[in-house]
Simulated scan of single mutants.
Amino acid sequence: MRISFQRLLIITIVAMLALLEPTLSVRADDLDSPRQALTNLTIEPLKPVVTGDHPTVTVHLTAEFGKPIPKQPIILLVDGKRKAEGVTDSRGIAVMTLKFKFPAGRYQLTAIYPGVLSIGVPSAVAKTNMRVESAKVAIYTVPPTPGVVFKLDGQTYTSDKEGVVNLEVDLGGTYPLEVLPIDHSNLASNIRMEFSRWNDNVFTPTREVHFPREDRLEAGFTVNYQVNQEFRDLSGELVDPARISSIVIRGVGTTFTFDKAGPIWLPANRLTRRIGDRLESEEILYYFRDVNIDGANVVNKGEQRFRIQPDDVWPVQVLLYSARFSARDAMFHFPIGKGIELTYPDGHKQEFFFDSANAELVIPALARGSYSARIIGAGGSAPPTPVHLSRDQGVELLML
């Protein structure tokens, strides 16, 4: 067999380069250059990458008989533009990372080995295609709510029936993202919703977010329902809500104060951040801390608790008692006076007149609390008598 001097020289050079570092045998893939070329350059097949990721390109450089060629420069072009370069290792492999932002699409990669022309080692070229896919993005609403509108980079997207927005981003980067105000015309009249927070500790509806992202993105909302109250005394009789001067309701560390009874709006849920940066929507348990009638609290704090549902009517029992008043002469104990003046816990006064010659009367539905009463319509001295009402009771007033 005859081997030309040029081929012998190239084989000798490759062998000397290989002696500088240990080598490993590799299998040559299909080559772009002719089968008997003196240098073979191949690119490992590329898997599709997602926009925003940095693809890694692996190139193999071998001699005519499959020997790896180490320490040789490789140039990498993307669509004809130089984007990276590397040097083959002892195995004839060069690994290059493309640290650029590629929009979704198809690209042609060209690897070039310039050769060593001065000693007759020819150049080599290999080509392949790279596919960059759009980044799939999901935004979850908590609790799951259809019809929520988000604006991402000027485009609007609406959550589906599962409360999820699915969209694609063609170029990785940082984008403005906004939760638009809830259109309450799309909700039932007894429901209101408002944005509360994101699961990554951002508390404003407008923010910036980087895509693609590995972490789940959630937007949390507070749901408010309208509820009413029904007040009854200990015997089950309805109490006029106009008598209620204020209500204090407490739930999960938050106190709500209302200056009258009637329909009120309250949040039905609270959002907590759990392990894994997930938001969880929890029902709120409410209790009545104070119901004020005539300046007195007529409920025991925390005894009456409720969970909220749309159009709820909460039955609230209030502590109202009756008092039987009688007026007597302190010395001879005969009936005296025309009536009594009652001072309520809030300080206002009201006169009541006896309806019989026995100088007695019953005042029903008095709020539990501290009062004072005195006889009116008699000539003697009638100092006020303290009355602490915590049950149905009789009160005797004396005239000195």
Rank of each mutant, 00 (worst) to 15 (best):
Y344E: 10
L361I: 09
V121T: 07
D233P: 04
E178D: 14
G295P: 01
G154R: 07
P181N: 13
A138M: 14
T58H: 04
L400T: 00
V209C: 00
S159Q: 07
V87R: 14
N297T: 03
T128V: 01
Y344W: 08
P122G: 11
E208L: 00
M193R: 14
P335D: 09
N269I: 04
T145Q: 10
N358H: 12
R307D: 07
A15W: 06
D294A: 15
T97H: 04
S390D: 11
G120T: 02
L279T: 07
T158K: 15
F334Q: 12
I336W: 05
H60M: 11
F100Y: 14
I336C: 06
G220C: 01
F5S: 15
G66N: 10
I119G: 04
I139L: 11
G172Y: 03
L320W: 00
V95I: 15
R391W: 02
T255R: 10
T88C: 02
V142L: 06
A327W: 01
A242G: 12
T156M: 11
N190H: 14
A111T: 03
E396V: 13
P103M: 01
D277R: 12
A188D: 13
S4M: 02
I275G: 15
F352N: 10
L17H: 00
S196M: 03
G295N: 05
F5I: 12
N186Q: 15
M1S: 14
P364M: 10
V142A: 08
G66Y: 01
N224M: 06
A94I: 06
G379C: 08
